[in-house]
Amino acid sequence: MPQTKQITPNFGHGDRRFGAVNWLGLQTLAKREILRFANVWTQTLLAPLVTAGLFMLIFTIAIGSKRGDVMGVSFSTFIAPGILMMTVIQNAFANTSSSLVISKVQGNIVDTLMPPLSAFELVLGYLAGGVARGLVVAMAIGLGLWAVLGIVPAHPFVALAFVILGATFMSAVGILAGIIANKFDQMAAITNFIVTPLAFLSGTFYSVEALPPVLYQITHLNPVFYLIDGARWGIIGVSDSNPMFGFGFALVSTLAICTLAWAWFHRGYRLKA
């Protein structure tokens, strides 16, 4: 009786973990992730821009005239970089998490896991889509801030570095969330109770110097705070913390999250049928 060969998903085991990279497979996965959000640009790119504009408008009208200057700049100028980074990290998270959850719900996650892609390549491919979406959103909002408020980045390369780091960090967090969640309501819970509070309570709309001592200390343990604060330094030249320390703290956090994402792909955690 002839034997049938059983095909099992490739979760990164084998002899190509960090060796020779499957560039064609990596490029294909990255291209798929980028085209996935580009094909529905009104939802993935235009909608965040409108939301960011509404935040700026509402806070400027409701608080701006009464708030006065913050750290030597107008309130509108102060919150602009925070809104930009908040939008970047939310979209980077949404890109990777939604891609994985949709694939799991539709049952076609095996199409990603079966090809000869290592766990390292899978992580890089998904990160490429999230970072690309974050960069496009950041550039669009940056152009809007220049056109409306006349804001020109004080340290453009610093701002770019923090935007890329922030998009990478939250893309990796999105990978973890997408692996954990098996249903859309589980993903919604992660977004509403973890991602949104991190974005809103990290100095986006205020200086952390105004916080009570306990909250002040807790905030300085949050990588998102350093991402937003670093972007503020890069764009308008003011910050609540040392940008170099913040970049290092956020970089270490990003490497830790990316390593965990690699480990979960490598093990097939919550991905094996």
Score class of each variant (00 low, 15 high):
Val101Ser: 00
Leu57Arg: 11
Gly248Cys: 15
Ala138Leu: 10
Val208Ser: 09
Lys183Asn: 13
Ile58Met: 13
Val252Ser: 07
Phe93Gly: 00
Thr168Tyr: 03
Val152Leu: 13
Trp23His: 11
Leu260Pro: 01
Phe18Arg: 12
Ala177Thr: 05
Phe11Pro: 06
Ile79Glu: 03
Asp185Gln: 14
Thr77Ile: 15
Ile61Cys: 11
Ala92Ile: 00
Phe18Ser: 14
Ile235Val: 14
Ala92Met: 09
Asn192Val: 08
Met1Phe: 06
Phe245Ser: 11
Leu46Ala: 08
Leu251Cys: 12
Ala119Asn: 04
Ala159Leu: 14
Gly68Pro: 07
Thr112Glu: 06
Ala261Cys: 05
Ser97Trp: 00
Gly64Arg: 05
Thr168Glu: 04
Ala128Met: 15
Tyr226Phe: 15
Phe162Val: 12
Gly14Ser: 10
Thr44Ala: 09
Ser118His: 05
Gly25Phe: 07
Ala161Pro: 05
Phe265Val: 11
Val73Gln: 10
Ser171Pro: 03
Pro116Phe: 03
Thr44Ser: 07
Ala92Trp: 00
Met170Tyr: 13
Ile180Phe: 06
Val214His: 13
His13Arg: 15
Leu24Glu: 09
Asn95Ala: 14
Ile109His: 02
Met56Tyr: 06
Lys272Ala: 15
Ala199Phe: 03
Gly230Thr: 08
Ile7Leu: 15
Gly19Thr: 12
Ala261Lys: 01
Asn192His: 12
Phe200Cys: 10
Asn222Ser: 10
Lys31Gly: 06
Asn108Met: 14
Met170Lys: 02
Ala140Phe: 12
Val173Tyr: 03
Ala250Lys: 01
Phe245Leu: 13
Leu176Asn: 02
Pro81Gln: 12
Ser76Trp: 06
Gly134Met: 11
Ser118Asn: 10
Ile79Phe: 05
Gln27Met: 14
Thr168Val: 08
Phe157Ser: 14
Ala62Asn: 14
Arg133His: 09
Leu117Tyr: 00
Gly82Asn: 15
Ala181Asp: 05
Gly237Lys: 01
Pro116Ser: 07
Val195Tyr: 02
Ala20Trp: 14
Ser171Tyr: 01
Gly125Trp: 01
Val224His: 03
Met56Phe: 06
Ala62Asp: 11
Asp240Val: 01
Leu260Gly: 03
Asp229Val: 07
Gln186Pro: 08
Gly107Ala: 14
Gln217Cys: 09
Val70Glu: 10
Thr259His: 11
Gly129Lys: 01
Phe78Pro: 01
Leu46Cys: 11
Phe37Trp: 07
Trp264Arg: 03
Ser202Gln: 09
Ile175His: 00
Ile7Met: 09
Lys104Cys: 02
Phe249Cys: 01
